[in-house]
Design a protein around this nucleic acid. Structure first.
Lengths: 199, 199
DNA sequence: GGCGTATTTGACACCATGTCAAAAACATGC
DNA sequence: GCATGTTTTTGACATGGTGTCAAATACGCC
């Protein structure tokens, strides 16, 4: 058989960069093909469709991101962990120039109907899956903190609250692009969940 | 001059319904034209572009929505006001079948770059404007509540926190579509901001 | 009733996704 | 070393989107 003339992973990396900057619907396969130095048809041959290509590229991003968060949430006092967690989250939203925002939140809001059909539904599942996994990590940290007396409350409810705040931050980032404001909101959220007293 | 053959407001209403259900990029002017019984060209003549049409339709929605929220935030105890506020917010996200989500949040995340050019920037301003106005309403309610001893804390910071949660709820709605969960998160947020004691 | 002006209409240019058949390039067996 | 077979590449095509334009049209107004 004839060997492929391009590197599978290179294309995924290049494609996700574009998807991140311009959104799925705002990125054309021609853009990606040009950037990757590949014929558009080859992309269809290799990946099937734009959505399938996006899904692969996104899974790669989600995996890397989850590992980074896991590290952030695994060391230090609970307050320290949450601070690092929010810091990483906001830094991720504000990375790139101009800042690229949160690809997961963007993807979720770009979906068609909530009960969509076909590949849209696969994408929704992928986005929701990352959100769920992050929630689980946060809840774990809170539970551990509770055992050490750093937190009193319902870990599951608090984790859900924190996740909701991170999704809200992703939205406010697009609305105002005011990074100091985002960080203030994050600090306030930590204070609310942990109690305002310094520990 | 020749009179217009369609009603300006009818088209805005029909258009926004589609934009809400399918997003700006997911809705074609052909769709709107068909639904409204108007030639596509007439829409371009009357509104200039899809984005301009969307902007007009959105302003109409935003105005109505703001009035409704104002009413929700203007009566009863602070806890009651916030409860009604979240209730209205979630009900709005979950309206329609299938539920249509939050048009403002969706619009914000659909934007190109944060420092976009042209009409994208106009749209961003419109979305951000609604968010700002809602924040102001919430802050007002909190300040009033503070004077009556129903709340102790920084009204501005708390309002920003609450707004962040509502934006996060809009995102989780798309991810999971779990309305009871959304309502639990909202109740938890109110407890956090107001203090968990029943009042 | 005719004129002017704004709206309507259909053709067009351009770019997007996705499909397909023909051409090309290597791996393999002989 | 060379023919064969399979996969990738390539370019043409169908379809549908946005946006522009000139010609046709229909009404208000004089």
């Amino acid at each position: 058989m004839r060997p492929r003339e391009f590197d599978h992973d290179d294309v995924l990396r290049i494609a996700f960069d574009q998807f991140w900057r311009k959104g799925v619907r705002g990125t054309s396969l021609s853009d990606i093909a040009r950037d990757a130095g590949v014929q558009r048809g080859s992309l269809y041959n290799a990946f099937g469709s734009k959505e399938a290509l996006f899904l692969l590229a996104y899974e790669r991003y989600a995996g890397d991101y989850l590992v980074a968060l896991q590290k952030a949430l695994g060391a230090g006092s609970l307050r320290k962990r949450l601070t690092t967690f929010f810091d990483l989250t906001i830094t991720n939203f504000r990375s790139g120039s101009p800042p690229r925002g949160c690809p997961t939140t963007r993807g979720l809001m770009e979906l068609g109907a909530a009960e969509g059909e076909g590949l849209d539904e696969d994408a929704r599942r992928a986005f929701a899956n990352l959100v769920s996994r992050i929630t689980a990590l946060v809840e774990e940290a809170l539970s551990a903190g509770a055992e050490r007396g750093e937190f009193s409350g319902n870990p599951a409810a608090a984790a859900l609250h924190i996740i909701t705040v991170t999704r809200g931050l992703a939205v406010l980032e697009r609305a105002f692009g005011d990074e100091p404001q985002l960080r203030k909101i994050a600090a306030h959220a930590i204070d609310l969940v942990l109690g305002k007293g310094v520990r």
